[in-house]
Simulated scan of single mutants.
Amino acid sequence: MSISAQDVKELRDATGVGMMDCKKALEEADGDFDEAIELLRKKGQKVVKKRADRKAEEGLVVTSIAADQRLGAIVEVNCETDFVARNDDFSSFADRVADLVLQERPDDLDALHALDYNGERTVQEELVRMTGRIGEKLAIRRFELIEASDDGHIVSYIHPGSKLGVLVDVTGDDEQAPLDVAMQIAALNPVAVSRDEVPESVQEKEKEIARESAISDGKPEHVIENIVNGKLNRYFQDNVLLEQDFVKDASTSVQDMLDDADVSVHGFVRYALGN
């Protein structure tokens, strides 16, 4: 049967798939609009299967914050190339997924994939549709929600390029200090807010490394524990947020900067693309 240009355009508008693919789908479906959509979805599923062994290591880290700043979501969405990561459609999809995580609070990726995306498709179906249209392996790798502590609020920082994102739970009225501490977390990747939050297993590992190093260097037995404790303290200074040197002013610590601004940090989430 004859397929009109208007029919092709309507299918293109409904699916976002290229004009030639839409025309072929309509021809194969004898003009049946719904069947053509299913054919296009099947094409997308084939692309997913075909590219299943490909590596999706590019992408975006995006965040979404509730209007009252009491809850924040961070999501990593992957693709194969940086070119696609800079595509407006891909970026819009990532932002929409972050908003859905914030609104629906899914328990895991399976629950996220099953969420309604736009009233017509689930998140998984939209992922398949975009895979078919873009021609790259796409994936939602991970997500996390962080809820503000009592009297706290969530602050977001996305590093230029959207490859690195941070959510921080803070209390205090100062506007600049929370952003500064979010940038600090992005730059120096602390393992915890305070040394009390560093897992005992991590501390023991650091002490073991320091002890073995001191022994191999031939240090006297009576000074080894002092060396071990000194190196553990140095580990805290390098890797615990409040004890790190402030990136904007190395003469002061993050703790001192926050004290001056009357701001406290209660927790954070940091996502770096692929890590």
Results as ranks from 00 to 15, higher is better:
Met1Val: 14
Met1Gly: 11
Ile3Glu: 05
Gln6Phe: 04
Val8Lys: 05
Glu10Pro: 03
Glu10Gly: 05
Leu11Cys: 04
Leu11Arg: 09
Arg12Asn: 10
Ala14Met: 03
Thr15Ala: 07
Gly16Met: 02
Gly18Asp: 04
Cys22Ala: 09
Lys23Leu: 13
Leu26Met: 09
Glu27Gln: 13
Glu35Val: 15
Glu35Gly: 15
Glu35Trp: 11
Glu35Ser: 15
Ala36Gln: 04
Ile37Ser: 03
Lys42Gln: 13
Lys42Val: 01
Gly44Lys: 10
Gly44Ser: 07
Gln45Val: 07
Val48Met: 08
Val48Asp: 00
Lys49Tyr: 07
Lys49Thr: 12
Glu58Thr: 13
Glu58Met: 11
Glu58Ala: 13
Thr63Arg: 03
Ser64Gly: 05
Ile65Arg: 00
Gln69Tyr: 14
Leu71Pro: 10
Glu80Trp: 07
Val84Glu: 01
Arg86Thr: 09
Asn87Ser: 12
Asp88Trp: 04
Asp89Ser: 11
Phe90Trp: 09
Ser92Met: 12
Phe93Thr: 00
Phe93Asp: 00
Phe93Glu: 00
Ala94Trp: 09
Val97Trp: 01
Ala98Asp: 12
Ala98Tyr: 05
Asp99Gln: 15
Asp99Thr: 12
Arg105Leu: 14
Asp110Cys: 06
Ala111Asp: 13
Asp116Cys: 04
Gly119His: 01
Glu120Gly: 13
Val123Cys: 11
Gln124Gly: 02
Glu125Tyr: 06
Leu127Ile: 03
Arg129Ser: 15
Thr131Cys: 06
Thr131Ile: 08
Arg133Asp: 15
Arg133Glu: 13
Leu138Glu: 00
Arg141Val: 14
Phe143Met: 01
Ile146Asp: 00
Glu147Gln: 05
Ala148Gly: 01
Ala148Glu: 00
Asp150Trp: 09
Asp150Glu: 15
Asp151Trp: 02
Ile154Ser: 00
Val155Ala: 06
Ile158Lys: 04
Ile158Ala: 10
His159Gln: 03
His159Gly: 03
His159Thr: 08
Pro160Glu: 02
Ser162Met: 08
Leu164Asp: 12
Leu164Arg: 14
Leu164Ala: 08
Gly165Glu: 12
Gly165Tyr: 12
Val168Asp: 01
Thr171Glu: 00
Gln176Trp: 06
Pro178Thr: 04
Pro178Ser: 02
Asp180Asn: 11
Met183Thr: 06
Gln184Arg: 02
Ile185Tyr: 00
Ala187Ser: 09
Ala187Lys: 08
Leu188Asp: 07
Asn189Val: 14
Val191Ile: 13
Ala192Gly: 12
Val193Cys: 02
Glu197Asn: 09
Pro199Leu: 04
Glu200Lys: 14
Glu200Gly: 09
Gln203Thr: 10
Glu204Trp: 07
Glu206Val: 15
Glu208Leu: 07
Gly218Val: 14
Val223Asp: 10
Glu225Phe: 11
Ile227Cys: 13
Asn229Lys: 14
Asn229Ala: 12
Lys231Ser: 13
Leu232Lys: 03
Asn233Cys: 10
Arg234Ser: 15
Phe236Gln: 03
Val240His: 02
Glu243Gly: 11
Glu243Asn: 04
Ala250Met: 02
Val254Ser: 02
Met257Pro: 05
Asp259Lys: 10
Ser264Tyr: 00
His266Phe: 05
Phe268Tyr: 01
Ala272Arg: 11
Leu273Gly: 04
Leu273His: 06
Gly274Leu: 05
